[in-house]
Design a protein around this nucleic acid. Structure first.
Lengths: 351, 351
DNA sequence: TATCGTCATGAAACCGGTCACAGAAAAAGG
DNA sequence: CCTTTTTCTGTGACCGGTTTCATGACGATA
């Protein structure tokens, strides 16, 4: 490919050297002007800026990154792109990062392949030093798997979301499911005086689900209620799962005052089924959920639930990563941050 | 900083040169092994791979990118992180990109700042050559603004979503709003026999809203209905906007058989208000929307609407960008792809 | 006038890889 | 046995920036 002339502009590649040549200076000087470092006379600065503007020159980020050893990019790993949380996390993260002139490299775990493949992928991105730090939201990752990933030796600022790897040396941002669940249960017990409950758990492995259950049971005990009366079910956190598990709840419906679902989607499924039976949720029986999905206020009846502070989660995580990136020494010790979730009382509890 | 010894592993930086030294070969040979290019004897290959594995070496992506002139990253610009579309687009894009070993650099337009600032940001990312190509979903971008961005001279594969910049030389992926709107309207007219309509438009600038309106009006005309009887309103595509505009519709409620809202959120707002008046949507009056937000099937009554193929949109866009990246010459001419949206009949139309 | 600190600039090393080229060794062919 | 081809490996240029260091000019100070 021979140099062609077009519009009178010689088609030499637009690099810092070319700009330097045009300005009659060395590339070091151009670099100084562009970065505002070191001494440059007002005269040459002006001339260089003029040329830079005229040719609409922007330094190649790959070269900058290589020599500065910084990509100005933070990795964000999310379990999926749907579901109530992810959009909020993403919003929080992106907001903070972009305000600090950082970019977001998004990696999604459920993009087709197996979870282990997806994990290899994001770990690879870290090892390649494609990012300066990462925020990882990987609900099914356990400590043994984490160790195998050999992430620790990378010395990269990493914060985990809703997974407590604090003991393994990583920053962790958690939401206090248990005490929020206790708040919700207290509302049902103290305000409404319910005594007969069904509890629908999520999948067995879900630590979140367990924590919510513990918070629930804790309040029953502290209120002197008979814990053995509680009917416990287990489903899979989905809408369909909620409808399915309802078939098991149905025979006991008479004896129940409230159904506590460990998340909103299952609660929605249960509510739909109740309606099909002409039982009025919120009037004949209370149904509550957990998460505060954004549609929770729009369904009928509006769902009493617990709001997960995922936006804040994202912001705090991003802040933390950025801090670690820019002050590598200051933040040596991993922290564990516990955010509290807020009870949102609407009508499905009987209010 | 002097070299320290730790765990017996000398702390020289883990670079290709270091690996080469350990293996007693040149870095070119290591590079060959890692990339599977050129000739390498089985013996040295084995030895090198062994060492690479032992030290868990991964080439620095910044250096690779610089010399290969490829980042293996595609930029994705989205209007926001909430709303019905973004998650689906993202899912489609991420799926295709990750399957092809590309990464997704996500940029969101409503992260705090003004739209023009946000635009500068993503344009900067392109100019810096931070990505090999981009998928841009920027609903408020118009041709004049686009020209000012001087994106064209970058010679970067770019595809626009739901914006027709085909004439300006860019790939564009569109959804055929008009004919889908016609399908929906035909359903209301032919199947249900409605004659008296209200139409709630979105913001004035929205070309989508206009297209939906045109499709609607077209069918009325072809059906010989009196076009002047249609009550036309305009709101802002939000739930609250739907509730607000309902106050203007209310006086005419008696004379109406169906309310066509240009998107689902406004339809939801209208439905809520109707319920407040004890008018039963889907029975006493039909309400339809557009977009098929993922909650549309769960509300009461389930919403008749038009499904936007955003997942497909994302996949096709990603495919196209990837193709252009890897076959720079083959795809010279910009294409315009028109996807059709699907009518989704549920109950809110009276079915 | 000699000395010094400040300012301005360029040369060249460096970041960590890829790749074109050349030369040597081994294998194949005559 | 000598040539030709194929296989293997290393040297060094290159990607496009940043940064250290050296040098020179200038005005101020002694």
């Amino acid at each position: 490919m021979k140099p062609v002339t077009e519009k009178g502009v010689s088609q030499l590649k637009l690099t810092i050297s070319y700009i330097a040549k045009l300005a009659g200076v060395s590339k070091a000087t151009v670099s100084r002007v562009l970065n505002g470092t070191g001494y440059v006379s007002e005269e040459t600065r002006k001339k260089i800026l003029e040329i830079v503007k005229k040719y609409d020159y922007t330094p190649d980020s790959k070269a900058v990154s290589l020599s500065k050893k910084r990509t100005y990019t933070v990795g964000l790993v999310l379990p999926s792109t749907s579901g109530p949380f992810y959009g909020e996390v993403l919003r929080g993260v992106e907001e903070v990062l972009s305000q600090n002139r950082y970019f977001t490299l998004l990696m999604v775990l459920d993009s087709g392949k197996h979870i282990s493949k997806a994990r290899e992928r994001y770990v690879a991105a870290l090892k390649e030093k494609r990012v300066d730090g990462a925020i990882i939201f990987d609900p099914t990752l356990n400590p043994e798997q984490l160790k195998k990933l050999k992430i620790h030796s990378l010395n990269l600022p990493i914060v985990f979301l809703l997974k407590d790897f604090h003991d393994l040396g990583f920053d962790s941002i958690m939401v206090d499911n248990r005490s929020a669940s206790a708040d919700l249960t207290r509302h049902l017990v103290k305000v409404h005086g319910y005594k007969k409950f069904a509890f629908v758990k999520g999948p067995k492995e879900s630590e979140d689900s367990e924590e919510r259950f513990r918070g629930f049971m804790g309040v029953l005990k502290e209120s002197g209620l008979n814990v053995d009366d509680v009917l416990v079910f287990s489903s899979d956190f989905t809408y369909e799962g909620g409808r399915r598990i309802f078939q098991e709840i149905r025979p006991h419906l008479r004896s129940l005052e409230a159904i506590y679902c460990a998340n909103d989607e299952m609660a929605l499924g249960v509510i739909e089924e109740l309606k099909g039976l002409n039982v009025r949720p919120g009037k004949d029986i209370a149904v509550v959920g957990f998460d505060d999905a954004f549609w929770a206020q729009h369904i009928d009846p509006p769902l009493t639930t617990v709001h997960q502070p995922m936006y804040e989660c994202g912001k705090i995580a991003a802040d933390r990563v950025l801090n670690r990136i820019e002050n590598p020494d200051t933040f040596k010790n991993p922290v564990k941050i516990l955010l509290k979730a807020e009870l949102v009382v609407r009508n499905s509890c009987g209010c």
